[in-house]
Amino acid sequence: MTDASVTDVAHNGAQTNEAGFGDYFALLKPRVMSLVVFTALVGLVVAPVGIHPFIGFVAILCIAVGAGASGALNMWWDADIDSVMKRTSRRPIPAGKVEPSEALGIGLALSGFSVILLFLATNLLAAALLAFTIFFYAVIYSMWLKRATPQNIVIGGAAGAFPPMIGWAVATGGVSIESALMFALIFMWTPPHFWALALFVRSDYGDAGVPMLTETHGRPITRNHILVYTLFLVPVALGLGFTSIGGPVYLAAAFVLNLRFFYGAWLVWLRDDAAAEADNYATEKWLFRISLSYLFLHFGLLLVEAALHSLGWSIW
């Protein structure tokens, strides 16, 4: 190999380790951000107080940026365990694309930007809720709970449940039973959603020292937890139908969706590992698949009710 060839190889190798826009964007966890943006938008739209569309756009942008800041701070803190686990080893920091200090700087900068701009554009409560959400995910969940308790995903789920409450606060300047129930809907959905996945996916959390429930207590206990949290989830989801943002369309569809979800959780609870392995965890995979659309459908139904209310078609 000639000296020129060696130089070219070294140059190309260096290029593969250079961070591009996609690497920095990946720090923000865009897939998680999509759910955050959608639920925050619903919280904003269904609120009884209207706001200027531009202010609404700025508010949703701030919430999205705040969610991305949380993701960057999480990746900075979890860089050590991300490098151990197969599903996270290609993230920008363990892949050597982005330096941990860069992720920390981006996370802190975006956190400050999103909170301050939301305060200037809307109100103090909305900004305070966004700041607490970022703090909760980055510090309480990532730095403390994730490596300390098998209930990490339960308590940590609160971070993903705040966006519709923030959206509601943007419009109204306060909180209410409606925003609290939207929060509770996401909070109660999170454990059965993630634990259904954990039942059939071989995770390497144990190798990384993360005490996920399936690793610390086994699959039978995890099945019990899925059923219990589903029992709490169903009345929360149906309860939203009887509030000012609900209605007969939401309630009828939510009844079917939650009957289906509970049926799936019940079937999972009845099974043992031998039966699950025999059919390659078909029931667990089915429950996880329907959980993927569960939140989007419920929050989409709230948008439908908001449209009907604006047309004066509400019977509540």
Score class of each variant (00 low, 15 high):
residue 308 L to R: 11
residue 229 Y to N: 05
residue 74 N to T: 09
residue 148 A to V: 06
residue 184 A to P: 00
residue 43 G to A: 10
residue 308 L to M: 11
residue 133 T to W: 03
residue 295 L to M: 08
residue 172 T to S: 11
residue 108 L to K: 06
residue 166 I to S: 01
residue 153 I to H: 02
residue 20 G to F: 13
residue 61 L to K: 06
residue 19 A to W: 03
residue 27 L to D: 00
residue 1 M to P: 03
residue 287 L to N: 00
residue 104 L to R: 08
residue 114 S to Y: 04
residue 26 A to I: 15
residue 256 V to E: 05
residue 107 G to Q: 05
residue 238 L to P: 07
residue 132 F to Y: 06
residue 77 W to P: 00
residue 191 P to N: 11
residue 99 E to G: 07
residue 108 L to E: 07
residue 283 T to N: 06
residue 90 R to A: 15
residue 180 A to F: 14
residue 47 A to D: 05
residue 101 S to R: 12
residue 256 V to G: 06
residue 178 E to R: 02
residue 70 S to H: 05
residue 284 E to P: 01
residue 36 V to Q: 03
residue 11 H to Q: 13
residue 251 L to R: 05
residue 108 L to Q: 08
residue 112 G to L: 01
residue 104 L to N: 06
residue 190 T to G: 05
residue 156 G to H: 02
residue 240 L to A: 08
residue 286 W to Y: 11
residue 116 I to T: 13
residue 191 P to R: 09
residue 34 S to V: 15
residue 169 A to S: 12
residue 248 P to K: 02
residue 14 A to G: 14
residue 38 F to S: 00
residue 88 T to M: 12
residue 306 A to T: 14
residue 116 I to R: 04
residue 71 G to V: 09
residue 268 V to I: 14
residue 279 D to L: 01
residue 213 L to K: 00
residue 306 A to G: 08
residue 159 A to V: 09
residue 290 I to D: 07
residue 32 V to D: 03
residue 292 L to I: 13
residue 165 M to T: 08
residue 1 M to Q: 05
residue 66 G to K: 06
residue 120 L to K: 05
residue 10 A to C: 12
residue 137 Y to E: 04
residue 104 L to G: 04
residue 118 L to T: 02
residue 193 H to W: 11
residue 48 P to Y: 11
residue 32 V to A: 08
residue 178 E to D: 10
residue 204 D to I: 02
residue 153 I to C: 05
residue 52 H to T: 13
residue 174 G to V: 14
residue 304 V to W: 10
residue 217 H to L: 13
residue 278 A to F: 06
residue 291 S to W: 02
residue 38 F to K: 02
residue 26 A to C: 13
residue 94 P to E: 08
residue 290 I to Q: 12
residue 196 A to D: 01
residue 270 L to Q: 12
residue 178 E to T: 09
residue 189 W to P: 00
residue 32 V to R: 04
residue 125 L to R: 08
residue 199 L to C: 09
residue 46 V to R: 00
residue 7 T to R: 14
residue 156 G to R: 02
residue 146 K to N: 07
residue 265 A to D: 04
residue 49 V to E: 10
residue 35 L to P: 01
residue 255 F to P: 01
residue 157 G to P: 00
residue 157 G to D: 01
residue 115 V to T: 06
residue 277 E to I: 07
residue 82 D to V: 15
residue 105 G to S: 14
residue 33 M to S: 07
residue 83 S to L: 13
residue 258 N to K: 07
residue 164 P to S: 04
residue 177 I to L: 13
residue 276 A to Q: 05
residue 113 F to S: 09
residue 158 A to W: 09
residue 137 Y to K: 06
residue 276 A to L: 08
residue 90 R to E: 13
residue 293 S to Y: 10
residue 222 T to D: 01
residue 301 L to G: 00
residue 82 D to W: 12
residue 177 I to F: 11
residue 61 L to C: 10
residue 64 A to L: 12
residue 199 L to V: 14
residue 183 F to C: 01
residue 111 S to V: 08
residue 266 W to P: 03
residue 311 L to K: 07
residue 180 A to L: 15
residue 132 F to T: 04
residue 284 E to F: 04
residue 123 N to C: 06
residue 292 L to G: 07
residue 5 S to P: 06
residue 292 L to T: 12
residue 56 G to S: 12
residue 127 A to R: 05
residue 289 R to Y: 11
residue 192 P to V: 15
residue 313 W to K: 09
residue 154 V to T: 02
residue 50 G to F: 12
residue 94 P to Y: 10
residue 309 H to C: 10
residue 51 I to Y: 03
